[in-house]
Design a protein around this nucleic acid. Structure first.
Lengths: 201, 201
DNA sequence: CCGGAATGATTTAGGCTTAAAGCATCTTGC
DNA sequence: GCAAGATGCTTTAAGCCTAAATCATTCCGG
């Protein structure tokens, strides 16, 4: 996510804009009572509920992602996109086709090309064309890449546990289940986007 | 989020890397049984549970964020970071100091400067130094900016509801509450980062 | 008052990200 | 065979994002 956060409430504090890291967060959560033309429907089906959930989802993710990105940079001088790609490769026993990586990471194909270039330069992966289809490029972890990833992954694991430590196991599991349903909900409502036709349609 | 997703399972499909949009998602969710040196602790306190939750959180957010970004671009030719900044300004009755915007959006100060520049160019906001402190810059919505934001926000609202439509109100509310606790958990474990001292300490 | 420190914003260098265009290769229908 | 289209990757232009350096201003202790 190159995270970005939409729409939270927090007015003012004009003459002392600091201490936001401490307590200004407190009031940030309520959606206030502005009702910018989003009418409550007759039967009372939520309007606002979903938006509130989305904003919290986005804030949590951005918060945690920024922290992980920052620790990864400070402790390993490594970037999150590269780590993410290594993670995918660590799980794919016989390497990944670039297009697969693009889908798994939910980023564009051009982006994968760029990140791969960096990882090649550091010697963490290899890239070779498929023997059966010369359009296809297959990337694989090197030994050095796997070792580096394992080290970072262990730290990463610990960081995540630390950041989630305020939630019980049950609560975490419940959250995970809700998110699975949310993912299905969103996924089913996103029509597969056409890959940009050349001419005509 | 400049979204980026770490560590999911999904091996193979070497010779037909398509259809990932349909069903390849199905298996993507399990964390498999690789136990890369992350030992289950004696008393059975979770290890893995938190990481699984984090990965789902990240995937859900990236999925939804990408979709919203894409619709915003297609339907309004607008970017998400700019929309997010307008959203903050729409809620701040008497404008925002740049530093406040930076904290609310959880992005760096330099980034805010860049996005502000763009919004100034489109005439959606104004920027003026504070009368009491000439270091401080205050940004405000113009009428055009507010109108444009309200139009986009209404669409945005609808998109979010649509994407969450598979969850009941109760489930959505529960999710929101869990995320509030998660945010507190993470927040309390992130030490405020020093703003880079000049010389020495 | 004055100098050092803190604060707020901008600039800079580097990296990630996308959409769209382009190139190479493969597939398909005939 | 072969042309038309599909597919896989790379390139390009533009924009987002960060950390660190820099500049301007304010604050504070003396």
């Amino acid at each position: 996510m190159s995270g970005s956060v939409a729409a939270r409430i927090c007015v003012g504090l004009r003459n002392r804009a600091d201490d936001a890291r401490g307590d200004a967060w407190a009031g940030v959560w309520d959606l206030g009572e502005e009702d910018r033309g989003a009418p409550v429907e007759a039967e009372g089906r939520d309007t606002r509920t979903a938006v509130r959930a989305w904003l919290r989802l986005l804030t949590c993710t951005t918060l945690i992602e920024n922290e992980i990105r920052s620790r990864l940079r400070e402790q390993f001088d490594f970037t999150l996109p590269r780590f993410d790609l290594l993670a995918q490769l660590d799980k794919a026993e016989d390497g990944l086709v670039l297009g697969e990586a693009s889908k798994l990471l939910m980023v564009s194909a051009g982006n994968v090309t760029a990140v791969v270039e960096k990882l090649l330069a550091s010697g963490y992966i290899t890239r070779q064309p498929s023997p059966t289809d010369r359009r296809v490029q297959i990337i694989r972890l090197t030994h050095a890449g796997r070792a580096a990833f394992r080290t970072m992954a262990e730290a990463h694991h610990g960081w995540v546990e630390e950041l989630f430590a305020g939630l019980s196991d049950d609560e975490t599991t419940t959250l995970t289940d809700s998110l699975a349903r949310l993912k299905r909900s969103a996924q089913s409502r996103i029509e597969p986007r056409e890959p940009s036709r050349r001419r005509g349609a």
